[in-house]
């Protein structure tokens, strides 16, 4: 066991834990942040996607000892009150079916919008390729990202 000090959603959290523990289980079992989901455990489905210093990262294959000073953002910390453009767009377009993968989809999409504020379908497909949606909401995910880009653009000009 070792002591780790993590920055999670802007808060400093200290935890005594084995260094090989994947960040996903630190979040879910120890910090009670269960928005990041367990889907495969090998970085193939994207349900566990969080941001480390803004970079989308698979929490299920990231040992807590590898995080260092990087700032962790989870779906719970994406916005203060659920008003990130993607969260608004997801509600507006009723994107989810079962909803289990959607936190991961949104986290990956949020990073995409940061580097490409008006992404094309091709960019969306390339960036979201690592996020499985078993229910097949892919058309609404594409539409949701375009809608979020509009909402963000409207905020810019407002």
């Amino acid at each position: 066991m070792s002591q780790f000090t993590l920055s999670v959603n802007g808060e400093t959290r200290s935890i005594d834990i084995a260094g090989d523990t994947p960040l996903l289980w630190v979040l879910r079992d120890h910090l009670q942040l269960v928005g990041s989901k367990f889907g495969c455990g090998i970085g193939q489905c994207g349900a566990c996607t969080v941001h480390l210093d803004g970079e989308p990262t698979r929490a299920c294959i990231t040992p807590v000892s590898d995080i260092g000073q990087r700032k962790i953002t989870t779906i719970e910390g994406l916005s203060a009150n659920g008003e990130h453009p993607l969260q608004i767009a997801w509600r507006e377009l009723d994107v989810p079916q079962c909803g289990y993968c959607q936190a991961g989809q949104i986290m990956t999409a949020a990073a995409l919008l940061k580097k490409s504020p008006r992404p094309s379908d091709q960019e969306i497909d390339a960036e979201l390729e690592g996020n499985l949606c078993r229910c097949g909401t892919y058309l609404r995910i594409r539409a949701g990202i375009h809608r979020a880009a509009e909402i963000a653009a409207a905020r810019e000009t407002a």
């Binding site: 928005g35 989901k37 779906i75 916005s79 993607l86 969260q87 994107v95 989810p96 909803g99 289990y100």
Partner: peptide
């Protein structure tokens, strides 16, 4: 009508068995 759990889903609130 949007799914009633959508607000919880998009903010990562506990919902699922896991």
């Amino acid at each position: 009508i949007g799914g009633v759990d959508n607000p919880a889903i998009v903010t990562g609130k506990p919902l699922f068995g896991i």
